[in-house]
Design a protein around this nucleic acid. Structure first.
Lengths: 209, 209
DNA sequence: ACGGTATTCTTACGGCGTAAGAGACGTCAA
DNA sequence: TTGACGTCTCTTACGCCGTAAGAATACCGT
């Protein structure tokens, strides 16, 4: 059989493309192989197992988030949060992965370290700074999950359908809020911005900035 | 074969017990049947498919969180957040489910509606109140995922192992923070409390309470 | 005893991750 | 040219999964 010139990187790239196009449920070793014109077992030459593919995917996504921690810490921390959200929204199928797997991959750790170092240089304690970064990161993941989270099986959960069929007698406030724009992109954006501000201003320890 | 006196409720209860005991990955229809002394297909008499079992599980967990929205809104909203976190920590294997599935089940909606109504009675707009509830809920889910989240396959991700093998030269601040208690239960608790306070005080619209 | 309904089981299909090892290809030494 | 060797790919197989289709059983009212 002809050599195809595969590599771990090409395998991961194909996996990301497949997942973006058809969702996480479509990612199987056989299918991924087919996508690359190769049998399933061939992939095991470049990757130890499927879990490694998944870990590779989240590391790809996380590594793309790079923020220069210069200037007022609140500003670049906010930019960090915005960048995570943008990256996650760009690959919503990865959300369940990022949410469930701890961020131990090299890419993520390096970014965290750099931000923590920058914060400590501004007078934060090491633990203090990391708690802050951590709080922001977990908030963003939680928010984005609610905004664009998909159930592994079927993408695009039918939120609107369920919402529209709500009994206004049983859930009057919910119905009213829905008519006022709850769940729209603007609503998500606004809630994200305001909650993020609340965190950034409420978590600064004893008079920083 | 003798009748066993099964029911949807007993199936869900067994599923929850199984998941708590052995993790989400252990929940298969055949295994769940075996747990109940029954063949896999028998379950389909009580439940349309496996997805319905999963939905039932999260509804069970979510429904157990009931908070009486009386008194100062900040206090019962905080109690709500604490209750969600406690429930999720009690069943960490459910976290990936709760995080990925939108909370459309009847139990969750009813609670949300009651809280939104209470907030509106205190002068919040319908949308305003629901945004607040929403922000708190997504924060709690995000935080708890980071605190106790498990990868569906193997429970108890080996955080400590990876952390201990960190190169102090490459990640000095991280290592320092770890020595100072990053990742301990107390650290999680403290970060949760402080971030929650920040949210509750920073998200109140124009001078409420 | 009997008919009907409620409950359970059997069988089967196509898909999954991956262990084990056989086979084909390219390269280089003899 | 030949052969051996490392690199890459394929074939086969196992035991799991969710579940469609329908046969078989157990119970109940008559």
């Amino acid at each position: 059989m002809p050599r195809v010139g595969l590599s771990r990187e090409k395998v991961l790239a194909a996996a990301l493309a497949l997942v973006d196009r058809e969702g996480i449920a479509a990612l199987s070793m056989r299918r991924l192989g087919a996508e690359l014109g190769v049998e399933a077992m061939t992939l095991y030459y470049y990757v130890p197992n499927k879990d490694a593919v998944l870990d590779g995917l989240i590391d790809m996504a996380v590594s793309r988030v790079t923020v220069e921690p210069v200037g007022p810490w609140r500003e670049w921390l906010r930019a960090f949060a915005v960048a995570i959200r943008r990256e996650l929204l760009a690959h919503p199928a990865l959300l369940p992965l990022v949410a469930t797997r701890p961020v131990l991959a090299p890419g993520g750790l390096a970014t965290v370290e750099r931000m923590a170092a920058a914060l400590r240089a501004e007078g934060f304690g090491a633990l203090e700074g990391l708690q802050l970064v951590n709080a922001v990161a977990t908030f963003v993941v939680g928010h984005t999950l609610a905004e664009a989270g998909r159930t592994p099986g079927h993408d695009e959960p039918d939120v609107t359908g369920v919402m529209e069929s709500l009994d206004p007698g049983e859930h009057p406030v919910l119905v009213e809020a829905l008519r006022a724009g709850l769940g729209t992109p603007e609503d998500h954006q606004e809630r994200f911005d305001r909650a993020l501000d609340a965190l950034l201003h409420g978590l600064a320890p004893r008079g920083k900035s």
